[in-house]
Simulated scan of single mutants.
Amino acid sequence: MEKLLVASLLVLSSTSYAATQTWDFVGSGGVSSLNRNIVANSINLSDNDNTMSVSMTAWSAYNDENIFQSELWLSQWGTLVYNANGEAHWTDNVGRYDFVLLSFDQDVELSGISISNYMTDSDISIAAFDSNPFEGGSAMTRWNQVSGYALSSSSFSNVGSSPLNQYYALDSGANQAKTTAGTSASYWLIGAYNQYFGGGLTAGNDNLKFSGLTTQTSNTTQVSAPASLSLFAFALLAFAGRRNKLR
C-alpha cells in the first residue's frame, strides 16, 4: 500500500525528458543554372521522424548594407543561397554574408550541424532568437544589429574539416564554453562566419553547404489534475483503512 501512495505522489509531479531530432537538408534535386533571378522563398521541412517542423529562409548582406531575403535551395549537395545573378552556389561570406534562418514550431537547442561540402575554409556563425529578427517592429537591418539582438551567438572554426558528412557537435568538448550551449529558442541563424557574431576568425573565404543538423527539446509529461488527485485520494483512503485494520 505504501508503494501505491508513493506512486500517486510521483504521478502528481511532471516528468521531463530530452528528445533529439535529426534534420536532413539534402534534397533530390538541384539547380539548372547559376543565373538565378533571386526570388525570395521559404522551404518547410519536417524532421526525419515527422515530430516537428521548421520553416527555412535565406538572408544576405554586406556589413554596411540592408539585409535582404535571398533565394534558398535544398539541393542534392545541401543548402544553396543565391544573393546575386550568377553567384556561386554556396552559403558563403565571399562578398555578402549568407545565413539560413530556421524557424522551428517550438523551442529547440541546436546541438549539431553537418557540412556536406566546403571550399577553402568552413568557419560558421550561429545565433539564437526568441522572435524573427527580420520581421515585425523590431526588424534588424544590419548584421551588427542582428548579433546584438540575439539571445546568444557563437562562431566555430573548421566545421567542415574531416570527416565530412558527420554531425559536428556544438555542445561538447571545447565548445561547451560557447555561449550558445544550452540555449533553447525557436529561431536560429546558421551561416558562413560573420565577424559580428564573435570568434576572431578570417572572413571572405568560407564557402559551405549545410546538409543537416540535430536539435534537442525538453519535453514535459503531466497527468491531468482530476485524475492524479483521484488516485492520490484513493491511495490515502486505502492506506488509512489498512492502518485501522492493523490496530
Rank of each mutant, 00 (worst) to 15 (best):
S138A: 14
S138I: 03
S138W: 01
A139H: 11
A139C: 11
A139E: 10
M140Y: 03
M140R: 09
M140A: 14
T141E: 10
T141M: 11
T141V: 13
T141Y: 12
T141R: 13
T141W: 06
T141Q: 13
T141K: 14
R142V: 06
R142Q: 11
R142T: 07
W143I: 08
W143N: 01
W143T: 03
W143D: 03
N144A: 07
N144S: 12
N144Q: 06
N144D: 11
Q145N: 10
V146S: 01
S147D: 03
S147G: 06
S147I: 06
S147E: 05
S147W: 02
G148Q: 08
G148W: 07
Y149P: 04
Y149D: 08
Y149E: 10
Y149W: 00
Y149C: 02
A150M: 06
A150S: 15
A150C: 07
L151Y: 02
L151T: 15
L151S: 10
L151D: 04
S152L: 01
S152R: 14
S152V: 06
S153Y: 14
S153W: 01
S154M: 05
S154K: 05
S154G: 08
S154E: 13
S155L: 05
S155H: 07
F156K: 00
F156M: 01
S157D: 12
S157G: 08
S157T: 06
N158S: 15
N158C: 04
N158D: 12
N158T: 08
V159E: 01
V159R: 00
V159K: 01
V159N: 01
G160Y: 03
G160W: 02
G160S: 08
G160M: 03
S162T: 12
S162L: 09
S162W: 13
S162P: 03
S162A: 14
S162Y: 14
S162N: 13
P163V: 13
P163G: 13
P163S: 13
L164I: 11
L164M: 12
L164V: 11
L164A: 10
L164N: 12
L164E: 08
L164T: 12
N165V: 01
Q166A: 15
Q166R: 14
Q166N: 14
Q166M: 13
Y167M: 12
Y167I: 09
Y167A: 02
Y167N: 11
Y167S: 05
Y168E: 03
Y168V: 03
A169T: 05
A169I: 02
A169Y: 04
A169Q: 07
A169L: 08
L170G: 00
L170W: 01
L170D: 00
L170A: 04
L170N: 02
L170R: 01
L170K: 01
D171A: 05
S172G: 12
S172C: 07
S172H: 06
S172V: 08
S172W: 04
S172Q: 15
G173A: 10
G173D: 05
G173I: 06
G173W: 04
A174M: 07
A174K: 09
A174S: 14
A174T: 12
A174G: 05
A174C: 02
N175K: 13
N175V: 05
N175M: 08
N175I: 00
N175A: 13
N175Q: 15
N175S: 12
N175G: 05
Q176D: 04
Q176C: 07
Q176P: 01
Q176N: 11
Q176R: 14
Q176G: 03
Q176F: 05
A177E: 11
A177F: 09
A177Q: 13
A177P: 00
A177H: 06
A177G: 08
